[in-house]
C-alpha cells in the first residue's frame, strides 16, 4: 500500500484543527455531553476511548454537525461549526452552508454506510461528481487511485454486498478521502468487523496517519491508539476524565475510572 499523502490538503498552521469549548449536548432529558474542552492539532492522531454511552461518538458527530450542540462552542479550522457569529448573536447556518462545511471533514462509520446500489468505484466518485461538480473522468481517475491505495484496485466494479466487511470499510475510507478533507473522523471503524479483518483497516489508517492526516478516532483498539495515536482522551459519562499521550494514559492511568475501564479492555 503506497502513500496516501497526495490527497491530503496542506493544513494551515498556527491554530488547532478542532477546538471545543465547554461543549454540551442533550437529547431531551438525557445529558450526554457535559462540557467538553479539548484541542486537536493539525497532523495529530487523536484517539477517544471510553465505555459505551460515555458520549465519545456523540462528540464526534457534533464535529461535522450531524448532531447540534446544546451549549458551548465548537470550531473546525477556526470556523464555528453550524453557526455564524455576529456580535454576540449566533445565527444558524443554512443547509447548503452546513453542507459546505462538511465537505472538508471526512467521516468513517462503524457500519460502513456504503451506498449499496453503487459499485465501489461509484461510491468513491459520488461526492466529487455531485458535490464538487467534478467531471466524471477526473473523479474516476482519483477514485481508481484511492481504491488502488487502500488495496482494492481489483474490486472497483463490486457492489458493497459482494465485499467483506474489511473491504467495505476500506472503500468507505477511500470515499471520504475523495473529497480531500483536512480532517478525518473515525467512529469505531473496526467495531463491526470480524477480528481477522480488523488489521487491514488499521493498516490503511496507520498509512493515513503517517502521511500527516489529522484524525480523530473513536476506538476500542488500544493497540492502535498506543502505536499510532499522538494524544488520547478517556471519556466517561459525558466528561473528559483523563487526557495525555496514549502511552502514558494506557500504561499509567491516574484516575480510578480510567484504571477500572482499562483493566476491563486491556
Amino acid at each position: 500500500m503506497s502513500s496516501l499523502g497526495k490527497d491530503i490538503a496542506p493544513s494551515t498552521t498556527g491554530h488547532p484543527m478542532v477546538r471545543a469549548e465547554g461543549v454540551h449536548k442533550s437529547f431531551g432529558l438525557a445529558h450526554i455531553l457535559k462540557g467538553i474542552d479539548l484541542e486537536v492539532n493539525p497532523r495529530e492522531v487523536f484517539c477517544l476511548i471510553g465505555p459505551s454511552g460515555s458520549g465519545k461518538s456523540t462528540f464526534l458527530r457534533c464535529i461535522n454537525h450531524l448532531e447540534k450542540i446544546s451549549a458551548g462552542r465548537l470550531y473546525v479550522d477556526n470556523e464555528l461549526v453550524g453557526y455564524r457569529q455576529r456580535g454576540d448573536k449566533l445565527y444558524e447556518l443554512k443547509e447548503s452552508e452546513v453542507a459546505a462545511q462538511r465537505r472538508n471533514i471526512g467521516m468513517v462509520f462503524q457500519r460502513f454506510n456504503l451506498f449499496p446500489h453503487m459499485t465501489a468505484l461509484e461510491n468513491v466518485m459520488e461526492a466529487p461528481v455531485q458535490v464538487r461538480r467534478e467531471s466524471k473522468a477526473v473523479a474516476r481517475e482519483r477514485a481508481e487511485r484511492l481504491l488502488d491505495r487502500v488495496g482494492l484496485g481489483d474490486r472497483k466494479g463490486h457492489y458493497p454486498a459482494q465485499l467483506s466487511g474489511g473491504q467495505q470499510q476500506r472503500v468507505a475510507i477511500a470515499r471520504a478521502l475523495a473529497m480531500e478533507p483536512k480532517l478525518m473522523l473515525f467512529d469505531e471503524p473496526t467495531s463491526a468487523l470480524d477480528p481477522e479483518l480488523v488489521g487491514e483497516v488499521l493498516d490503511v489508517m496507520r498509512d493515513l496517519a503517517e502521511d500527516g492526516m489529522t484524525m480523530i478516532v473513536v476506538t476500542h483498539e488500544m493497540g492502535f491508539a498506543r502505536e499510532v495515536g499522538d494524544s488520547l482522551v478517556f471519556m466517561d459519562d459525558g466528561v473528559v476524565v483523563e487526557a495525555g499521550h496514549p502511552r502514558d494514559v494506557l500504561t499509567n492511568p491516574q484516575h480510578d475510572r480510567t484504571k477500572s475501564f482499562l483493566s476491563k479492555v486491556l
Binding site: N64, L66, E95, S96, A99, A100, R102, R103, I105, G106, M107, F109, R111, N113, L114, F115, E126, A127, Q130, V131, A172, R175, A176, M179
Partner: peptide, 22 residues
C-alpha cells in the same frame, strides 16, 4: 437505513441530493 442519509450528509450532499441520489 438512516446511516445512508448520514453518510451522504457527511460527504457534503444536501437534502435534495441525498434524496435523489441515495
Amino acid at each position: 437505513d438512516e446511516g445512508q442519509t448520514e453518510a451522504s450528509h457527511a460527504l457534503g450532499m444536501t437534502q435534495g441530493k441525498t434524496l435523489r441520489r441515495v
